[in-house]
Structures are given as C-alpha cells and as structure tokens.
Design a protein around this nucleic acid. Structure first.
Lengths: 277, 277
DNA sequence: GCCATTATGGAAGATATGTTCCATTTTTCA
DNA sequence: TGAAAAATGGAACATATCTTCCATAATGGC
C-alpha cells in the first residue's frame, strides 16, 4: 500500500478509487464499486450499513478505507459530511477573517459574494421541488391578474417580477408602499398573489398575502424556510435558501427562480391563448 | 407534552415545529429555530454540533427532540438521513437529466437559468478589473451621499442597492420615477451617483448620470458593455455581462457586484469613522 | 501438492456519541 | 416578597459505532 496521504476532496477520492480498484482483492473491490456507485450514502451511513451494502464484512470496509489513505472510516466520512453540510460555510466568520487579515480587498470580497451566489444556485437546483414549481405556475397562469408584494430586500425581487411579467404581457400589479396607500382590495377572486419575504419577515407582506387568500386569490410564497409565516397562509410554498455572507444575501438564487417563474407562466399563457388546452 | 407519535416526514416535522414553537421555553425555541433554518445539517451532525449551533446544551437539544415526539436525537436524525440519500444526484448529472427529460418543463427552465446565473458569476469574477472596483469604492465612500438610479430591469438592482446602503448607514437616495418627479437637483458636489443601465439603455438613467456629473458628483456606472452611453459620462465603469437566456437575464452577477460594492463601501466608511486613515 | 503469502471473517477492545439524571438557576404566581 | 414550578447546565452513564487483532481460509508460486 502506498503511503500517500488521504484525499482532500471527493473528486480526488473518486479518482483514487478508479486508480487503485484494478489491483484490489475481491472484497475490497466490492467496496470500491459500492462507494463509487453510492457516494451520497457515505455521509449518512455507518460502517455496518456500508459494508452490508457492499456485501462485505465491516473489517473489510475498514481496510478499504485505509488502502485509500484514510486512517479509518470516520476520516473518510468526514470528507463527505463536510462537503454536504459545509457547503454552507459560516460566511459571517469568514468575512470577519477577511477583514482582520487585511485580505479584505474589494476584489476578495466580490469573490466571496460570487462564491455565495454560486452555492445558492446549486442548492436551489438541488432542493427545489419540481411539483411545487409546477403547481405554482399552474396557479399563476390561470389567474386573471398577478399581484406582487415584497418589502425591503424582497422588493428588488418583487420589482423584477413586475417588470418581467409586464414584458411577457401578463396582467400585473406591484404592491409597493408608496404613500402608504393600501391596495389590498385590488385583489379579487380568481387573481393570484406572489408574496416574497425573508427573515425577518415583513408583517405587511404577510398581511397582504392573508388578505389575498381571504379574497379568494391563490397565493404563491417565495420565502427562505419552511418556518416562514407564509406557510400557514398557502400550500404553494417555494423555498430558496441563499447563502449568507455577513448580513447580506446575494439573491442570485431567488432571482433565478423569479425569471423561471415568469417565463414559464408567460409561455403557458401564450400556449393557452393559441388554443392549446 | 402531548403523547403523539413521532413525525414521519420532514414536512410533518417542520409543521410540528411551527405548531409548538410559540409555547416553547427559550432554549428549546433556539433549537426549533436552528433546525428550521438548517434542516440540512441534522443528517450529518452530532448532538454536540447541533446544540452548539443552536447555542444550547446537548441536554436541551435532547429535550427538544423529545418534545417533538421522538425518543431522542437518533430517531430524529434517522428521518433526515433517510430522506437525504434520495435527493442527491449531484448537480451536474441532475442538470443533464432535467435537460433530457422535460425539455420545456418548468424545472428544466429553472435549471437553465441557474446555469446562466452560474456562468455569469464565473465570468464576473474573471473579468472585473480590481482597480476599477477599487476606485469606484473609493469614490463612493468619500461621497457625502450616494444617489442611485436605474430603470426597468435595472430598477431591481437600484432598489437593492438602496436597501443595502441604508442598512449599512450610508446616506442614500433612490431616484425612482414615481409621479415623474424629477429629482436631479438633489445631486450636489461631493455626492456620488450609481447609474445602472443595460441595453437598450434608458435615456432617463443616462440623463440623470449626466446631470450628476455636471453638478460635480462622481458617477459610478454599472452597465453591460464598454459601448454603453455611460462611457462618455464617467471613467468609473463597472461592466458586467450577464448570460442571456431568451429575452431574460438573471441579474445574478450584477447583484453580487452590488452587494460587494455596498459591503466594501460600508466597511470603508466605518473604518474612517473610527479614525483609521 | 506443499509452503509462503495474502485475504477474509468474526469477535474483542477502544472510543465517540447519545441519553439520563439531578442539583442549581430562573421564572411564575399567589 | 416568597414559595412552587419550570427550565437549565453539566456531569455521569449507557450504548452504538468504529477500530484492531488474530485465527482461519484462500491463493499463488515453486
């Protein structure tokens, strides 16, 4: 066995498996194949489960880990667990460090936000429930009019949605708070409301969503956790968790979701107008 | 505590958290909030890690699990581990699958926008000139007040900048076009203007940037090409090219740049106030 | 076919992790 | 304000899990 140190990333690990598996004895090769086929299980399984899956004894699996350069299963598992959970590094402390170390140059900062944005996007693609998206789009495209509400940070998203829907010829009303005019009575049965809010949730947004629901409109919520106050209001919940960086979120994922919504609804409407059922 | 049995799915679990968290004591509520905000960590963490994250003792976290109806942490963790193995085809292959399968399905569309966003972010990190960023930040942080203007699609970015600057205690004015009131005379010498516009460029935005320059304010332009009409107006040009998808852009990169700007300016200001040169 | 070498299985030992208990602190209500 | 109830923190305990070891089985070369 070679004395190289343990792989530092999952890619590296899979490379090494590929590299050594030809010269491996039967049982160890079973392990190699099982891990290569089910890398996702490593993070959440015990040696017993893994070895059973591979059809070998725990001790064999143990040897396999060591052949790969790990001290044991635990070390290998840490790699997988980190790549899963620590995909969301603690950006707050990272920002701290950048500031302290003086490496906090604007470009370094930008790089961090770019990275945060990328993680958020990947996470969105991985976690968003396609069925939830489908039902949300169905509700929106059947609506007579789409009402949009979002305050503070979410206002950027709301205004973008309003812009894009308008461009797609979807009847839209953006509920802003100019003049503190309350326009909740504009929401009528057969309409739809898109409510966007992130922690700390704006009461105004929630209130308007509730008013919409009472008026008989379908409510689509874009929010950041299943613990959102919008959850009791509507079953149509699209959750987007953005990677934090300090006190700020990039909104990259949220905006991508927004564009996807608009385009999907826009095309659905167009299809209907052209007589396709 | 009620004697109902343990939740059988993560959805059910989050529902129950929502349901009970109001009547929970302080520490247990901390647990509830932490779990709701980081459900992904449960699968790969130990009680010690979870309780540390929530800021409580392991025993408190234990009690929390039991209030939810589980026998202990292990049982709750099993729920997450089981559900985890399923939704983990990795990002790349998932994207492939989406494209192959429902070419026009909403999820496929979302995947496209996610991909577009990612490309834009990578491109931004690669192409943005660090020196341009530095000078822009210097100009902004030396300004008495920051004026922000952007129309149509760029309005989302403008409103986000306004929100974030305000949060950073930077004096800010968002120039919208409510009531078609013209507020260009609010811009004075020693101020700075951030003008955001993309093709087809809004004349109003360009006009306001020009007015600002004439008034003796520094103008920072966020735009999409060097051929922008803002080029003659100011040397401080930050160009961001977003990947198009159909008629829409995701704005992911632009927003990341925006956050970076804000945080950099905010910290620069704070440093100055504390007497650091 | 025999010996040396390597691989394997199972069980025993070490360690990390989950769980419970109880003294102490904090809160609540009279 | 004082007593009762609830909540909390930390340490002790139990257990699941990882890891090592070695006797036995299989393999390969001579």
């Amino acid at each position: 066995m070679d004395a190289r140190s343990a792989p530092a990333s999952i890619e590296e690990l899979l490379d090494r498996i590929l590299e050594v598996s030809d010269g491996l004895p039967k049982r160890l090769r079973q392990c190699a194949e099982y891990v290569a086929a089910n890398p996702d299980r490593v993070a959440v399984s015990t040696v017993a489960e893994m070895s059973e899956g591979a059809g070998v004894q725990p001790s064999a699996f143990m040897r396999f880990c060591q052949v790969l350069g790990f001290s044991g299963f635990s070390q290998m598992q840490r790699l997988f667990r980190d790549s899963y959970a620590q995909n969301w590094p603690d950006y707050a402390t990272r920002l701290e460090k950048l500031r302290e170390s003086g490496a906090g140059s604007p470009s370094a900062l930008l790089a961090e936000f770019v990275e945060a944005g990328r993680l958020s996007l990947e996470n969105l693609a991985k976690t968003l429930d396609p069925r939830a998206l489908d039902t949300a789009i169905k509700a929106l495209s059947e609506a007579n009019m789409v009402h949009i509400v979002g305050m503070r940070r979410a206002f950027s998203v709301a205004s973008y949605l309003a812009y894009a829907f308008e461009k797609m010829n979807v009847p839209t009303m953006l509920h802003d708070s100019v003049g503190n005019l309350d326009s909740r009575h504009a929401i009528r049965e057969g309409d739809a409301v898109i409510a966007i809010t992130f922690a700390p949730y704006s009461p105004e947004t929630v209130a308007l969503a509730e008013a919409g629901a009472r008026a008989g409109a379908k409510v689509v919520a874009i929010t950041d956790s299943l613990a959102s106050p919008l959850r009791p209001v509507t079953p149509l919940l699209l959750t987007v968790s953005e990677a934090d960086f300090g006190d700020f979120r990039s909104l990259s994922a949220t905006l991508s979701l927004a564009v996807a919504l608009v385009v999907a609804v826009g095309t659905a409407n167009r299809a209907r107008k052209n007589g396709i059922p």
